[in-house]
Write a protein that binds this DNA or RNA. Structure first.
Lengths: 192, 192
DNA sequence: GTCTATAGGCGGATAGAC
DNA sequence: GTCTATCCGCCTATAGAC
């Protein structure tokens, strides 16, 4: 693999797990089998390297999701699919999840806007169409953000479940979790 | 105020907003109107100061919640109250919320255990009792963690809502949000 | 208890050889 | 493009005066 991408992969892993400040250029260099000064042949400085990491990890994240939106199945099944695929993505690509959550914690307007547009906007728009069909009257923004919340948090909290009451092994199973999240959301959309 | 508590308050603010690594002892000293070496008369090192911050901020967080659990109202009203009070606490005490979320990101077994026991366990146990009465058959662990998820996230993404589809000013109103979260959760508990 | 001075190490970043 | 050598500033933490 080219050096450039190898650096990005190593750096993404480190930044995701330790955060921007806790990772040094020497750490990234070591993980990339380089010395620190070599990094500066590929990136202007540490900040530019971090930003490139974000773009690298956030890229093409919606390929699987788009397949769900394009499928010719009922809106109910599409909603179930969006939740399943998103949850699986967060579980499989922890760097993706962690970098999103670290960006959310930064509380920087510009970076929040980038995150919203780069990672969330497309999926939100498609999801809104589904929800409009399932329940025109519902608060779609609240439902979409609630789905984001549940998908992120139920993966994040996995290592903590053993310390909370009634946590069982099924709560680590993403199929079980996505069923539960789907039901929680779906019943809101039905006429009461 | 005594120096000791003044340091903790300044440090909590800084750690919550910038994270452990990004805050220097000099920063904390300046915010406490001291020089850095003076901090070492009160805390062994930076780590001990951070841990003391956590204990300081996490302390007596459940006073208001306990009042809800002790009140003589219906279980439905108690559940609504728990959500309202938790959401308000997260909105009013951003340091509390941010420090929780930063601890969750650390992914350190010991610290997750501390967070679970110190901050969440009591409320979870009391909440479980309410849920058992409202719906003995439900997955209480899933419901409790979903409430935590929604309470944290709907406060966290406030500054991002303007960049997401259909975000309106009512989504910044904690009364509206707590009603929506309550309804989302409560309907799961009813016989279908 | 707070300060000044400072040790000792690690951080980001650059110069220049190969 | 990668390296060694190095600059220089900031970091945590300590020593010791007041």
């Amino acid at each position: 693999m080219e050096t450039y991408n190898r650096i990005l992969e190593s750096a993404a892993e480190l930044f995701a797990n330790q955060g921007f400040e806790a990772v040094s250029m020497r750490d990234i260099a070591k993980a990339s089998h380089l010395k620190a000064p070599s990094l500066y042949n590929h990136f202007r400085d540490k900040n530019a390297l971090y930003q490139s990491c974000l773009k690298f990890v956030f890229r093409q994240h919606n390929a699987q999701l788009q397949a769900v939106f394009d499928s010719q199945v009922s809106y109910e099944t599409q909603l179930r699919g969006v939740i399943q695929v998103s949850l699986k993505r967060m579980a499989d690509d922890q760097n993706f999840r962690l970098l999103i959550q670290r960006e959310l914690l930064q509380n920087d307007q510009q970076r929040l806007k980038f995150l919203a547009q780069e990672v969330m906007a497309d999926t939100c728009d498609q999801l809104e169409k589904i929800l409009k069909h399932l329940s025109p009257e519902a608060d779609h923004h609240f439902i979409i953000t609630s789905i984001m919340s549940l998908v992120l948090f139920h993966i994040q909290i996995a290592p903590m479940r053993e310390f909370l009451p009634s946590g069982t092994s099924q709560h680590l199973d993403i199929h079980y979790l996505s069923d539960q999240i789907f039901q929680l959301i779906y019943q809101t959309l039905l006429p009461s």
